[in-house]
Amino acid sequence: MTIVREAGEAGEAEGREYWLLGTAHVSRESVVAVEETIRQGGIDHVVVEIDHQRYQSVTQKRDWSQLDIFQILRKGQAFLLLSNLVLASFQRRMGAGTGVTPGEEMIAAVKAASEVGIGSTFGDRPVTATLRRAWAKTGFWGRNKLLASMVAAAFSREKVSEEDLAKLREQNELESMLQELSDYLPQVKEVLIDERDRYLARSISEAPGRRVLAVVGAGHVPGIARTLEGLRAGTVRVSKAELEEIPPPGALRRVLPYAVPLLVGALILWGFFRGGLEGGLQSLVRWILVNGTLSAAGAAAALAHPLTILLAFAAAPITSMNPTVGVGLVTGLVEAFLRKPRVADFERLNDDIVSLRGFYRNRLTRILLVFLLSSVGSSIGTFIALPLLFG
């Protein structure tokens, strides 16, 4: 338990206290510690590291039947949905090893606070804002690195025990893991950890009462404590509204979708000028074969419908030249049309996302895999084809 104290105001003998209780999100020991801390008394208010949307998703079984996969694809939200599902898969697998539902200690905190007659606050940033900011701040390859890491973790067969979770709550172990995340995906670490540290600290400082208990993941405790100290000293400023804003794309991200097609087009035209009709056609064929083949290979790896695979080959060289339409949108929509998700797919979704086999078996998640892998294949094909066009 980390305690941050504020000096008392004029006329007050004691200032406010913020009790930061670090937990492991799938640990039975954490659930017990939270309940005991609240029920022992002396707490005026409880802040939990969860937002209202996630609290509802944890306490109420989500009805996936209302999900419109066509709209998800058209609105460009397939990456976000896939990330959500992979994250849910990871959390369920972690919980299966300890018999604890992910976030159960947060539910226990809200329930215990209600039982002893004190208020509670959902202190975390909305998960949609967090994911959108992470997506906006991470480039295409960074997104795929993040998804690859999440998929590897979600489908790992490694068992998680209470002893493992106890190690995760140790400061040295946490600092090492956070440093690894910072080295591998610095933008993601900034959004998922650092920004939420500040957001949670602001929520805690705004909570009523003299003694506030904050139930947060152990990895957030040091950052929250530093931010609370900074807020107290006036050296740190935190705006929740700013932390919920989706940053606009940077100059490179705005230019690149147009620059690459222009470069490809220029190189193909250069092939005609340099080598005549034969040279130009050779450049064009190289572009089509490399880009189309790798996109089709990605679709095939997702076990897409044969027509979807053929369309990936045909569409990728064209969509790669159009910054407004990606091949994943085309293949995803076609796969969704050819293999519409059934009622059973929605009913089994919570169970299917726990295993890689389930991801492939479920038509809904397979559509997302088709979207992702055909897009990755086309992107790789673009960068492989570019130097070949110089030849």
Rank of each mutant, 00 (worst) to 15 (best):
P248L: 01
S156C: 00
L389S: 09
S149R: 13
Q60L: 04
I380K: 01
L373M: 12
R5E: 14
V31L: 09
I288P: 08
G223E: 04
H25Q: 06
G381V: 01
I3M: 09
K340M: 10
G292K: 00
W135L: 02
I107M: 08
V215N: 01
R132F: 01
D351R: 15
A225S: 09
G280A: 03
G117F: 10
F390W: 11
V127A: 12
L364T: 11
E335M: 09
E278T: 13
Y199A: 04
N144Q: 13
R286W: 13
A314P: 05
P261G: 01
L267Y: 10
A218N: 08
V116N: 01
D197M: 03
E173K: 02
A218R: 06
R254K: 15
V330K: 04
D68W: 06
S27L: 06
I268A: 10
V86Q: 09
D63Q: 02
G95V: 05
R237I: 02
G41L: 07
R28W: 05
L67S: 12
A136T: 05
E29T: 06
V188I: 15
I3S: 10
R16Y: 07
T235C: 08
E105Q: 12
A148V: 00
I384V: 14
Q60W: 04
A214Y: 02
E190H: 13
L369Y: 11
S30Y: 07
R5T: 14
T37L: 12
G15M: 09
Q40L: 05
F313H: 02
V264L: 13
A312R: 01
I380W: 07
L349F: 12
A207R: 03
S161D: 09
R361S: 15
A241Y: 04
A385Y: 02
L21R: 02
M321F: 14
L80D: 13
S30E: 04
Q91N: 14
W64D: 06
A304K: 04
A251Y: 11
G279P: 13
A304G: 08
L262I: 11
Y199K: 07
H52Q: 14
V34P: 05
G209H: 01
G103H: 03
G217D: 02
G358M: 10
N291S: 11
L372C: 10
Q171H: 12
W19L: 15
Y55E: 10
A112K: 05
G219M: 05
D351N: 14
K340Y: 15
I353L: 14
A109C: 10
V343Y: 13
G117S: 08
A148I: 00
L372A: 12
T121W: 02
G41T: 04
L364I: 12
R132P: 03
W135T: 07
E158K: 12
P341V: 03
R143W: 12
Q56S: 09
G391S: 11
F313Q: 04
V86T: 14
E115P: 08
T37R: 12
V212C: 03
R253V: 00
I384R: 07
G250V: 00
S378P: 08
N172V: 12
L329N: 10
A314H: 06
E35P: 08
L67N: 03
E242Y: 00
F140G: 00
